[in-house]
């Protein structure tokens, strides 16, 4: 009897939290008519912003993965002084306000900084460009990839890597043929999380690049200029797109994992 009351309490409390997440989303869906949603999906500005959001987040994820995955491997395998400090730095973007992150990035890449000047000389600019958007997205979403990949590499037994070396393979071959495939599941999860987090970023992006508008900025802009009823269909549409992309990526990565096993 005691157990069932306890379980009921758990279910009730858990249910309240779930309701807290679902209720506003459902409310938003029910308040948006299908015709509004259809019209919004035909709006060129909305379509442009959704594509921009998707490709900049994907580009940021893939570009930064080139450095983030080796970094995760080093952190999982090597012991060095100040390692805890490095781990803390990696997780910093999670805890600082994203608007503050945006200010920091802008201060780093704006046209009067060495990085900005160098980029200008190369015919390139970060402020108010897709490159700046990708940079802001990467800044706030990188910890998700690094942490997931680090957990993945840490779970690969060092013995297997040593066995590879003992079989005459070079360290790079061991990395690509043993460590990377065995940590693959965690890395793919990290990539999906980084992409999803980047796609939903607003605070850092709005400071680095108000224009061109990614969808979260467009929602904010429509809300400020026209009110809730104009912003809501865009928000609903973006949530649907995000969900579809997220589910698709999970399915794709799941298939890869199954094929590997």
């Amino acid at each position: 009897m005691k157990t069932s009351i306890f379980q009921l309490t758990l279910i009730l409390l858990g249910g309240l939290v779930l309701l807290f997440i679902i209720a506003p989303l459902l409310g938003m869906f029910f308040k948006t008519s299908p015709s509004d949603l259809f019209q919004t999906s035909q709006d060129p500005e909305v379509i442009r912003s959704v594509w921009l959001t998707l490709w900049t987040s994907m580009a940021a994820t893939l570009f930064f993965a080139i450095g983030a995955i080796p970094l995760a491997y080093l952190l999982a395998r090597k012991k060095f002084r100040m390692k805890q400090l490095v781990l803390g730095i990696i997780n910093l973007p999670i805890v600082i306000p994203h608007s503050a992150a945006g200010i920091a990035i802008l201060g780093f890449v704006s046209r009067n900084t060495p990085v900005g000047k160098a980029a200008s000389l190369a015919g390139f600019d970060f402020v108010s460009t897709p490159a700046g958007i990708a940079l802001a997205m990467a800044f706030v979403s990188l910890p998700f990839l690094i942490n997931a990949a680090m957990d993945g590499f840490a779970a690969v037994p060092v013995r297997l890597e040593n066995a590879g070396l003992n079989l005459g393979a070079s360290p790079s071959r061991v990395f690509f043929s043993i460590s990377l495939p065995l940590a693959g599941r965690s890395i793919l999860t990290g990539l999906v999380l980084m992409f999803a987090r980047g796609m939903s970023e607003f605070g850092a992006v709005v400071i680095v690049a108000y224009h061109p508008m990614i969808t979260p900025v467009l929602i904010f802009e429509r809300f400020g200029a026209f009110g809730l009823s104009y912003a809501r269909p865009v928000a609903v549409l973006f949530i649907l797109v995000s969900l579809a992309v997220f589910i698709l990526l999970r399915l794709l990565t799941k298939d890869k994992i199954h094929a590997k096993n």
Binding site: P157, R159, L160, N162, A163, G164, L165, N166, L167, G168, A169, S170, P171, I178, P181, L182, K260, N261
Partner: peptide, 20 residues
């Protein structure tokens, strides 16, 4: 000498086979 160029073959107690 580097592990990979020693020419000694080690068979681990738990075999250390590559599971993938």
């Amino acid at each position: 000498k580097k592990i990979q160029s020693r020419g000694v073959g080690l068979v681990y107690q738990d075999h250390a086979l590559f599971p993938h």
